[in-house]
Design a protein around this nucleic acid. Structure first.
Length: 686
DNA sequence: ATCCTCCCCTAC
DNA sequence: TAAGGTAGGGGAGGAT
């Protein structure tokens, strides 16, 4: 490379990094949190799931009382006998974000209003104002001019130059939604939350308890909701969720409507197929190709024809819906099936290093969310968006993903995890499999599925089960050739210590510097989609025999079970072009805790601890730190520490410390299983 | 048949 | 500038 070329390169690098600091791309260390804080879709989604699980909680902790049902005694009795009839109610707040925001901007009531990040055209002429900010929600006055949610502000201004914009107020949406749910749950908990502003309720049991006129009850409920939230809602009633939902459309805005059983067929006949729930832009397009527009047309169409175009299940659903039939029951107890973090905005990278750093944050965020709901997962999926071949590098929408291709790849982990480093490492590996130049990335998402069942099985038992499955499913696999990283065999503190007392004094070289191997930076344990070869260090008691035993016995056996001790640890071969899992920055987080082990003089200090009584939480400290050595992949340090502890505790012959050591071993093994997805041998318990 | 992976679609 | 997330249902096509 010529000097000039070098100079130029240096210059553009500088410019690039200067730009990075300014433009708020995903390179910015605060980008992820900043983005999530301001993303309406993120808030909509998380509030929605939040309320689903809020209902779970309320149902679980419910005392059987519904305080608001008292009011219902004032209402007139129903002429209809409801006992046998399904009555489903659908509540939908009217342009929720706008209604909530209008509470703080009352002077804008009655005008075309939109909630958006764009500041509107305060300092610009409506004509040349064009913004690619999206409209999250707009008032009915704005809708009258043809505005729709999701529309760009620029386009909206063309249709409606006098449009007023108001900013988001996410905290207030949350508060208001809580008030909404609180109000309803005083009447019933047979609720399926759809989102922060929309829900279904099964009124059957309420009506058995209080046989009142449904529409009168709903009028009362709507008034109460309005009084408490300051926002109006619309309510539909029907014999199933579909009918209730269709009825809500009739009710909007700020009204209520009951779709009577006798009218259903006739009513559905004239409905547009596009207006059925589950029919989106794509289905609508297919329908126009088939010259289908109304439910009436669907009602008589041969089912086969529909299924040809829309698939077996959806074809059937379409026809059923066109007749007003919907068998899907309301779901009161939600079960989480996946957790994900996705960012398809602001993704602009120059170097792999930046991608890795960003993915680390994404992994940490995912880990945080998993821990928040107390789940671990086994199926990890990376989803990315890549600039389409012919798409321009600059997108129309600022920092948008533009026209992009979506691809995904997943791995089945050997053990469920919620650990950020494990997630990060595997995600990097998945990404590397695509070999996409960093500057072509436009979106990144990571999803964890196959979440834990709430079983209380010990990790070890789960592992046995897994091996049993594997072995009965697959013939025994030939041992895969690996390039081992060798922990140099020395005269053997590590050699199978017998459970009895007699153990030779370990050689001092056990902890000498020359034996410290390069830190193991990468231990992936993934099967199938992963190229990494995994060596199973765990040799099992015949799992089929084990599976026959009663669980308590199995637990007993597992408690006593010791890992086969090995002098040499092998780790999978990691090809050079793959990213190191633990980069400098990811070690940084744990530095404080690891200090003890990384500083030169930890041995005398720990040695003196062990000579005195344990106390002051020193054992706990060691346990914690040792587990963190595993999590940060400081396996070689861990070895040094564990051997030292084992030797010196053995010498002291202090029962308390021996028990403490056993606890440390347990923690270390648990951390290994979780983080490395396998167990490496450590000096045995006492 | 039944599973799995990689999509696509929809809803808020 | 602008903040294009998230979860679930389901299908195609291949592996078992």
């Amino acid at each position: 490379m010529s000097l000039k070329a070098l100079n130029d390169k240096f210059k553009t690098d500088l410019e690039a990094s200067a730009a990075d600091n300014k433009t708020g791309t995903a390179v910015d260390p605060n980008f992820l949190q900043d983005f999530l804080n301001n993303s309406r879709l993120h808030h909509i989604a998380t509030l929605g799931t939040g309320f689903k699980y809020h209902i779970n909680d309320l149902r679980k902790n419910h005392d059987g009382k519904f305080p608001s049902r008292e009011e219902l005694k004032e209402l007139k009795r129903s002429e209809v006998i409801h006992q046998s009839r399904e009555v489903v109610m659908h509540i939908d707040m009217d342009c929720f974000f706008v209604s909530v925001s209008l509470k703080k901007h009352p002077h804008l009531r009655g005008q075309p209003v939109a909630v958006t990040h764009s500041k509107g055209r305060n300092d610009t002429d409506a004509k040349d104002f064009h913004s690619y900010a999206e409209i999250a929600s707009c008032s009915y006055e704005a809708r009258a001019k043809g505005l729709k949610n999701g529309m760009f502000v620029g386009a909206a201004m063309k249709l409606c130059p006098e449009l007023k914009t108001i900013p988001y107020d996410f905290e207030e949406y949350r508060q208001t939604a809580f008030t909404l749910y609180d109000t309803i749950s005083r009447f019933t908990l047979d609720i399926e939350a759809v989102s922060c502003d929309e829900l279904y309720a099964d009124l059957k049991s309420l009506l058995i308890d209080c046989p009142v006129d449904v529409m009168e009850f709903i009028a009362l409920l709507r008034k109460e909701i309005f009084d408490k939230t300051g926002c109006t809602c619309s309510v539909g009633v029907g014999a199933n969720r579909l009918q209730a939902r269709m009825a809500t459309k009739e009710a909007k805005p700020n009204g209520q409507f009951s779709l009577l059983e006798a009218d259903v067929e006739h009513y559905m006949h004239d409905q547009k197929i596009r207006d059925l729930p589950g029919v989106g832009p794509n289905t609508a397009h297919q329908l126009t190709l088939l010259k289908l527009e109304t439910c009436g047309q669907l009602q008589t169409l041969p089912l086969q024809l529909l299924q040809q175009t829309f698939g077996k299940k959806f074809g059937e659903t379409l026809q059923m819906m066109s007749r007003g039939v919907d068998d899907k029951p309301l779901v009161f107890e939600q079960v989480r099936k996946s957790v994900s973090v996705e960012v398809n905005y602001g993704i602009r990278f120059n170097e792999n290093r930046e991608v890795h750093t960003f993915l680390k944050q994404v992994a940490e965020e995912l880990s945080r969310r998993l821990k928040e709901i107390g789940k671990k997962g086994k199926l990890l999926t990376l989803r990315i968006m890549v600039r389409a071949k012919d798409a321009s590098v600059e997108t129309r929408k600022f920092m948008g993903h533009g026209i992009a291709e979506k691809v995904s790849k997943s791995v089945q982990l050997l053990a469920s995890t919620d650990d950020a480093i494990t997630i990060h490492g595997n995600v990097l590996k998945l990404l590397a499999a695509f070999s996409i130049p960093p500057h072509e990335l436009r979106g990144i998402g990571v999803q964890m599925a196959k979440l834990d069942e709430e079983k209380k099985d010990s990790k070890l038992l789960e592992m046995f089960k897994k091996v049993a499955e594997k072995q009965s499913a697959n013939p025994p696999q030939p041992r895969i050739k690996l390039e081992p990283v060798i922990v140099k065999k020395d005269s053997s503190p590590n050699k199978k210590p017998s459970p009895t007392k007699k153990r030779g004094r370990p050689s001092k070289t056990a902890t000498s510097k020359s034996n410290v191997v390069t830190p193991i930076t990468d231990i992936f344990a993934a099967r199938k989609n992963s190229n990494t070869n995994v060596k199973r260090t765990v040799e099992m008691i015949d799992p089929e025999v084990l599976a026959e035993l009663p669980p308590e016995i199995v637990d007993e056996i597992l408690k006593e079970y010791q890992m086969p001790d090995e002098d040499v640890e092998e780790v999978p071969d990691v090809s050079v072009d793959e990213p190191a899992v633990v980069d400098e920055s990811s070690q940084g987080d744990l530095k404080t805790e690891l200090n003890l082990f990384l500083q030169q003089d930890w041995r005398p200090k720990v040695g003196s601890w062990i000579e005195s009584d344990l106390g002051d939480g020193r054992a706990e400290q060691l346990e914690h730190d040792a587990a963190n050595l595993v999590r940060s992949r400081h396996i070689s340090h861990l070895y040094v520490v564990m051997r030292f502890l084992h030797r010196i505790i053995n010498d002291q012959d202090n029962g308390e410390w021996k028990r403490a050591y056993n606890g440390i071993v347990d923690s270390v093994l648990a951390a290994m299983l979780e983080t490395l997805e396998k167990k490496l041998s450590v000096p045995a318990k006492f």
